[in-house]
Design a protein around this nucleic acid. Structure first.
Length: 422
RNA sequence: GGAGACGUCGCAUAGUCCGGUCGAGUGCGCCUCACUGCUAAUGAGGUAAGGGGUCAAACCCUUCGGAGGUUCAAAUCCUCUCGUCUCCGCCA
């Protein structure tokens, strides 16, 4: 939810943001009109209510005829108050519905445009030249089979398309990645968390996933619960309705399963485990003072990069264009790993600065020197397991189909240097 | 799944039976001031959030887990709901 006071002050800024996203500009004027209407209704209700309360206080003290006189006055007043209240509620609901349609105001530094208008910030690492090494690249599916690490056929048999089993070395690799990620996060000042993956509507709504992203969310009809698509949801909602005391930023790193319906991506990335309905992930989350959010965003990006570097995976960083931002994000950086079998970079991590958009919805603030202040929220992937496995298998594959284990992971895999053929 | 108790302004509690003087008392914590050489102790005052309003104030409104209802008037009465705790059942 954007800041209404700021919108009143500078509607043009919000209009420009909407335009940059390719979203409705007229909506801004509609919100302003609804806001004026609401405040009019509010004023009316409040003065009637004040009147009612004043007379009510007299009623309590009055006796006999005087009391009857006051009662007759306040009876008609009561009806007026109710009418005014209904009117106000209507205006409130109207305003809310419109405001929730407004996406976060984009950071002016974000590149303007659509999905393909991202800006490449940097490329890091060296892509291998498999031709020079003298063998044909295998993709992660093939490698997974050779190693006995990924079983996609049985995933489909048991759960359907876009499901998989990690088996043997694949299963151990996930656990190793999780441990490396959680240990790294803890060293970097994050509190390790294992959050619920099933949440109530309020948490889903508050984080902004029931808007344009709703079709990708699994809902449990019988219990009115949702399966989270990312630990961002339970982490953001962790402090819902709270005023944070003490030092900021507060950083959390959560290991959780992620469930995604992948509606609208039929036929896309159907091979392997690159795009699946369920995967596990270690996610970073930060509650941070508003004026430090940009620096914190850089830090999260830095942690993501360090992790990819530790895994010795070539990657690039892109600055996502305004039209491709989620509704909560003001700015977003993606790290894309090199995928040799596809000969292109593919997204493996993503970090967003949501400024005060999420915290406003979730009613999270902080107590600072000048009292209660708004707070910024930021999130970033530390390790999305399945995509990381794709990157490791493909980038570290050997001529015989075995896979070299990057040094940083070896301690978590019994010191082994390679995943050997099964 | 069954039975019961409870949910109040950071924490702990009073208030609910008998509706108005309760947006709400007390203790702790926290802040300011006074006093003591410092600390502690003591005394005085202050201390929920959100919104409207104002140059700034004053002032006004909303919120007593949540949603409805009764009433001129609800923390207080009624209904539903969520959560916590205790006991029983079941179970990993």
């Amino acid at each position: 939810m954007i800041d209404l006071a700021a919108l009143r002050q500078d509607p043009e800024a919000v209009k420009q943001s909407q335009a940059a996203r390719g979203e409705s500009v007229e909506l801004v004027d509609q919100v302003i009109a609804a806001d004026v209407a609401r405040r009019t209704a509010l004023g009316e209700f409040e003065s009637l209510r004040a009147n009612q309360k004043a007379i009510g206080a007299q009623v309590a003290k009055a006796q006999g005829d005087e009391k009857q006189e006051l009662l007759s006055q306040t009876k008609t007043l009561s009806d007026q108050v109710k009418a005014a209240e209904n009117q106000l509620r209507e205006m409130d609901a109207n305003l809310d519905a419109l405001v929730l349609g407004l996406s976060n105001v984009v950071d002016p530094a974000a590149p303007v445009g659509g999905e393909d208008d991202f800006v490449v910030i940097k490329e890091v690492g060296t892509k291998r030249d498999f031709a020079a090494e003298g063998f044909a690249v295998r993709d992660h599916v093939e490698i997974g089979e050779l190693l006995g690490a990924i079983d996609i056929e049985r995933g489909a048999k048991v759960s359907g398309s876009r499901f998989y089993y990690l088996t043997g070395p694949g299963a151990m690799l996930e656990l190793a990645l999780v441990q490396l990620a959680m240990n790294t996060a803890q060293k970097n000042g994050f509190t390790p968390m294992i959050p619920p993956a099933l949440v109530k509507p309020a948490a889903m709504e508050g984080t902004g996933f029931l808007g344009q992203a709703a079709e990708n969310v699994y809902r449990l009809e019988a219990d009115d619960m949702y399966l989270v698509g990312t630990a961002e949801v339970p982490l953001a909602a962790y402090h819902m309705d709270e005023i944070l005391e003490g030092a900021l930023p507060r950083r959390y790193a959560a290991f959780s399963p992620c469930f995604r319906r992948e509606a609208g991506s039929h036929g896309k990335d159907t091979r392997g485990i690159f795009r699946v309905h369920w995967f596990d992930k270690v996610e970073m989350f930060s509650f941070c003072p508003v004026d430090e959010a940009v620096a914190e965003h850089e830090r999260l990006l830095g942690f993501e990069e360090e992790f990819l570097q530790a895994l010795e995976i070539p990657y690039r960083v892109i600055d996502v264009a305004t039209g491709d931002l989620g509704s909560s994000a003001a700015r977003k950086f993606d790290c894309e790993a090199w995928v040799p079998s596809q000969e292109r970079y593919r997204e493996v991590t993503s970090t967003s600065n949501c400024t005060t958009f999420q915290s406003r919805r979730l009613k999270i603030r902080s107590r600072g020197a000048d009292g209660v202040e708004p707070i910024a929220t930021l999130n970033g992937t530390l390790c999305a397991i399945t995509r990381t496995i794709v990157a490791i298998f493909e980038n570290h594959q050997q001529a015989d189909g075995s896979v070299r284990i990057p040094k940083a992971l070896q301690p978590y895999l019994g010191g082994a240097s390679h995943f050997k053929l099964k």
